[in-house]
Design a protein around this nucleic acid. Structure first.
Lengths: 362, 362
DNA sequence: CTGAAAGCGCTTACAG
DNA sequence: CTGAAAGCGCTTACAG
C-alpha cells in the first residue's frame, strides 16, 4: 500500500469510516431519534440536550449523510441542469445565476452539457432521473422531440425550460424574441438604413422563427422590401458570421446593416469585417443579441439586445423551487416568463464611439 | 389541487411512487436478490431468468435508484467539480472536457462556482462532502489556505487540482507557466522588440509569479533591461487590460510589446488599443495565454499560448478516476502533470494578417 | 443458479 | 421532551 520510494499523495487511505448518528447517540447518551431531531433543529429537543449532542457530533467529526436522509425522507436536494451549449457565454451566465440561487436555497446543482445532441440529452436526463433530482432546468437541444416535456412530467419531476420554449403547457423562462428583433431592426432603420440583412437563419426552430419574424415585421411596418438573399442561412457560430459577411459583400443589392441571430454570430461578423479592412458601423452596421460580457470588449463594441441572464436564471430557479415546494399538487397555471429585451447601443451600429452606452427600454 | 380556471402545467401530481426491485421481484416471481443481480448484469443468473426480470422491469417502468444503491454499497458515483471563474471561457472548456470524460465513465458531475471567494468555496466543499462525492476536481479560488488539500485528504476524498498547484504532494494538472511565458517573450524578442511589458501582475500568487518569472528569465537571457513600471499591476480581467494600455501609453520609455497574464486581459488590451485608434501588432504587439476559442475571433486575432483545455480536462479526470479505483489504498506517487504550452501566432503580435496560423511547439 | 436475512445512515410516526 | 421500532431501496455475503 505505502511505498518507500515516494511520498504518497496526501490521501487518507485508511480512514475510520465516518461517524453516524448512532455513534453520536452513544457518545451523548441519547437515542438516534434525538440526534436526528437535533440535526434538524427541531424545537422539540431541550436546549441542553441539543448542545450535548452537537458537542458530541463536533468531537466525532460527524458529517451529515444527505443521501441517506433523502432516501429515508423521500426527498431530494439536488436539481439537474441541462444546457445545450456552454461555448456560448450567455448560457454560462445563466448557469452561474441559477447555481447561485439554488445553492442559497440549500440545493445542489447537477450539471450536464449536451452540445446540442439529442442523444446525449436523452442519456443525461436518464442519469438525472436515476440520481433522483428534485427538479430540472433545461435549455433543450435543437431538435428535441415535442413530447419530451410530457415525458419528463410523467416521471413526476418538475421542469422549467430556459430560452427555448416548447409550447404553452410547460413552465418557461425566456425572451420575447419577436419584440426584441423588431426593436433591433427599428434601431437600424432609425439610423437611416433601408437594406438590412438577417444573419443566422435556422428555419424550423421556434426561436429562429421568432427572431426572423421580429425583423420582418419591423421591415414591413416601414414598407421596406426584403430581398430573399438578405435572410442569410448560416451556422449559429462565429464561423457562420464570417461566412455571412463574405456572402453579403458578394450581393449586388448589398445590405448596409445586419441583425444577427446572437452575439456569437455577430462576433464572427465583426471579425470578418476587420479582416477585410472594413469597419463595423461604417461598412456594415451590426446588431447582436444576448449582451454577453464579451460584447462590451469587441472591436468595435457591439450593439446588442439584452434580457439579463442573471434575472432569467433567478426567475427560472424561483419557478422551479415553487413547483417543488407545492408537490405533490400543482401550484398554478403554466408560467411563461418572457422578458422584453432592451437594446444596448454601442459603436458597431452607429459608426462613432459612444462613451456612455445608453440602454433603450422597449 | 386541480383548478377549473386554467390548464395545469403538465406535472404528474399523483404519480404512483415508482416501482422498486421488490415490485419487480413479485412480478417476475423471483427474489429481490435475483433482481438486483440481474440489474448488475451478474453472470450468476441464468439467461432466461434475467430476461424475465428485465421484461418485468420494463413493464413496470422501473427506474434504478442510484442513491439507495450507493448508500448500501458504500460507493458513490458523483464527482464534485469546483471552479473559481466561469466567466473565463478557458475554465468552461475545461469543465466541459471533464464532464464529458466523467459521464463516459458512469459518473455524474456536481458543479459549483466560487467566483474566487474562499468563503463560498468552503461552503461548497462542505456541501459536496455531505453529498458524498467520490472525488473532487478543483481549481482553487485565489487565497485558498495552504492546508486545504490536506484537509480534504483527511476526509478520505481524492482531490485533483486544476491549473493552480498547491505544492508537490497534491495531484495536479496544469501548465508550465515559466516555460510558456519565456516562449511568448522570446517570440516578441524575435520580432525585434526590446522593450516588453508584462501585464496582469498579481504578486504573491503562485501562477502569477511563475508567469512573471518566465517573462523575466527570457528578458535576462537576452540581456534586455526591464523597467519597474513595465510590470503592470492590474486586475486579471478585460478591464484590467484596458487600464494597462492607458498606463503603458503614459510611460516615457514606452514598451512596444506586451505579454498578458491571460486572454481575458489581452482582450481588454486589444479593445483599448482599438478605442485609441491604434492597431495591435503595430502600436503594441500583444500576446495572451489560454487560447480560448474567442482568441481566434478578436480584432485583430490574438497570438496566445495554448495548452489545450480538452487535454488537461481529460487528464485530470483520468488521474482522479485512477485514485478512486485504487481506494482505499493509494496507487502511486503524487502526479504533477504539467503541459508545456505552445504558441499560436496570430496577427496581434506581428502586425500583418496570417492566413495560416502556425503553432510553434516549445 | 437462486433465496432469506442483515444492514447502509437516516427520518418519522407512535408511545410514553 | 425522549426512545423503540419500522422502513426508504438497494447490495452482499451466506446458505442451499
Amino acid at each position: 500500500m505505502s511505498n518507500t520510494f515516494w511520498n504518497d499523495p496526501i490521501v487518507q487511505s485508511n480512514m475510520k469510516t465516518g461517524a453516524t448518528i448512532q455513534d453520536i447517540a452513544a457518545a451523548a447518551g441519547v437515542s438516534k431519534s434525538t440526534v436526528s431531531l437535533v440535526l434538524q433543529h427541531s424545537p422539540k429537543i431541550k436546549a441542553e440536550t441539543a448542545e450535548k449532542v452537537r458537542e458530541a457530533a463536533r468531537a466525532l467529526g460527524y458529517v451529515y449523510n444527505r443521501g441517506a436522509a433523502n432516501l429515508r425522507g423521500g426527498r431530494s436536494t439536488t436539481i439537474g441542469m441541462v444546457i445545450n451549449d456552454l461555448t456560448n457565454p450567455f448560457f454560462v451566465e445563466l448557469l452561474v445565476a441559477i447555481e447561485r440561487v439554488l445553492a442559497q436555497s440549500g440545493y445542489t446543482t447537477l450539471m450536464a452539457h449536451t452540445a446540442e445532441s439529442v442523444a446525449t440529452q436523452t442519456r443525461v436526463l436518464q442519469s438525472m432521473r436515476e440520481q433522483n433530482v428534485a427538479g430540472l432546468i433545461m435549455s433543450p437541444a435543437l431538435g428535441t422531440p415535442d413530447d419530451m416535456p410530457s415525458e419528463i412530467a410523467s416521471w413526476g419531476i418538475p421542469l422549467v425550460l430556459a430560452m427555448r420554449p416548447m409550447g404553452p403547457d410547460v413552465d418557461t423562462v425566456g425572451v420575447d424574441n419577436n419584440v426584441g428583433f423588431a426593436l433591433a431592426t427599428e434601431h437600424l432603420i432609425q439610423q437611416g438604413h433601408t437594406r438590412i440583412a438577417f444573419v443566422g437563419n435556422r428555419a424550423g426552430y421556434a426561436v429562429a422563427n421568432e427572431r426572423r419574424q421580429g425583423y420582418l415585421s419591423a421591415m414591413a411596418r416601414h414598407d421596406l422590401a426584403v430581398a430573399d438573399e438578405w435572410i442569410v442561412d448560416v451556422e449559429l457560430t462565429p464561423e457562420g458570421g464570417r461566412k455571412a459577411v463574405r456572402a453579403i459583400f458578394d450581393m449586388k443589392h448589398r445590405p448596409t446593416a445586419a441583425v444577427c441571430y446572437n452575439d456569437q454570430v455577430a462576433i464572427g461578423v465583426l471579425h470578418e469585417l476587420d479582416r477585410m479592412g472594413k469597419r463595423a458601423g461604417k461598412a456594415l452596421a451590426v446588431v447582436g443579441c444576448d449582451n454577453v460580457v464579451a460584447a462590451e470588449h469587441t472591436n468595435p463594441p457591439l450593439t446588442t439586445l439584452s434580457a439579463g441572464a442573471e434575472r432569467l436564471g433567478a426567475k427560472a430557479s424561483e419557478i422551479l423551487l415553487n413547483r417543488i415546494a407545492s408537490l405533490p399538487s400543482v401550484s398554478g397555471p403554466p408560467i411563461q416568463y418572457l422578458v422584453k429585451p432592451s437594446l444596448v447601443v454601442r459603436e458597431s451600429s452607429i459608426g462613432i464611439p459612444t462613451r456612455a452606452p445608453k440602454a433603450f427600454a422597449q
